[in-house]
Design a protein around this nucleic acid. Structure first.
Lengths: 223, 223
DNA sequence: ACCGTCAACTTGACGGCGTCAACCTGTGTT
DNA sequence: AACACAGGTTGACGCCGTCAAGTTGACGGT
């Protein structure tokens, strides 16, 4: 293991960055969080194990720091999709979200399926959520959705998160061949469902027969 | 730590059962999977640590055995809700699913958010999924849903799973006060969304303005 | 009544993990 | 040239999963 040339005073942050990169790489290569060992990270960085503690309070802090980067990237992705017609933008955001999650399964799992280690929402996560609320708000303004944008956004988020996380965590379920199409179906189900639900009275499900007939008529008119 | 009275030959399965119960209790009390130590399980059972290996190949096998019990209970719960009008039964199943998950957060996390350790779907999980497919099939027969029941069921499952898992794994999100109402909203969003989506042509989202007007008209007629 | 047998369990150890207290070592300042 | 201190290293502790080897005690056969 080649030793790292010692940093000069004031350059402490360099090692912090190297450690973060090493941790992220390890996570991706091994494909599981259990492989993210402080010893492995230190070895890969060319540094002794306890040196990690100079820059991160403990292992959880390191993992969390890796997570923060992912939140940033996810937020950027969502913002990129937020232009144009709000309802279509909502669909693009959902698809981008799922694509991102499936493209970074390990990070997504660490990010969203770990027991919460710290209290409160990390700022990067809050920003990410804020972008989604913004898109939903635009939908409310155009009238396609109705209700509190934050609650609506949480519902939509939970739908796309369900699709992504189930695909990641339960690969042995009898998934259809075309996963993209399935993800698409989930996203649209959430969007249409939210739009329809916005207009129905709470706590009353119309009789299946009536609803089916009305939906048929609607579908015929729309197409 | 009081020692357990030694089992008589042929009674080996007794210890297996005791270990399983101890593991489940530990999981619930500690509230996190990390507390599920072979040493802790053995101590609680009043037995030496390696004795666990007499009945479980390794720690993963123990955890998986605990999971199987949960699958069984979840399946039973879903079957209980499957009577009566299919579309309403679907809603009851979704609500029961989320209630169950929120009532057993640790087990649900272990069950659904762990990296898959073994290949293939455990039989209990397949049975559980089968019950959901049956309810969806009934919905297809009555005409409220359309399409392949298995794919529809996966979409609905992913929606309720998203709601449950997000609530469990991200308690610091800005959730509304009334979680039951939120879960309800997610379930109905999935049901209505599926029903509506069944009837719309693939890969074409109607313009937001048109869809909004049609939904308004529909809502007025249904209420 | 004794005895060998074998399932059921224990002992003791190994290597790897996160973490910490104590020590070293170069670099920039005076 | 002496010093101070940021930026590391060494060595150890206790806990973890796991395993090879030894122990114990109920039971069937004589």
């Amino acid at each position: 293991m080649t030793r790292r040339t010692r940093a000069r005073p004031g350059d402490g942050l360099l090692l912090r960055e190297e450690i973060l990169r090493a941790a992220e790489d390890l996570l991706i290569e091994a494909g599981t969080e259990e492989a993210l060992t402080l010893r492995a990270v230190a070895a890969r960085t060319g540094v002794s194990t306890p040196s990690v503690y100079l820059h991160f309070a403990d292992k959880d802090a390191l993992v969390e720091a890796v997570c923060l980067r992912v939140w940033d990237e996810l937020g950027r992705l969502i913002r990129e999709q937020s232009h144009g017609d709000p309802f279509r933008a909502l669909g693009r955001c959902g698809r981008a979200y799922i694509r991102f999650a499936l493209g970074h399964p390990v990070q997504y799992r660490v990010l969203m399926m770990r027991p919460a280690t710290t209290e409160g929402v990390p700022p990067a996560a809050a920003a990410c959520f804020g972008h989604m609320v913004a898109v939903v708000s635009a939908c409310v303004e155009t009238g396609i959705l109705r209700g509190d944008p934050e609650t609506l956004a949480l519902g939509l988020w939970s739908a796309v998160h369900g699709c992504a996380s189930l695909l990641i965590a339960q690969p042995s379920f009898p998934w259809p061949d075309d996963l993209d199409a399935f993800a698409d179906q989930c996203v649209r189900m959430a969007g249409f469902g939210s739009a329809l639900l916005s207009r129905l009275p709470e706590h009353r499900v119309p009789a299946g027969r009536v609803l089916a007939a009305e939906l048929d008529a609607l579908a015929e008119r729309v197409t």
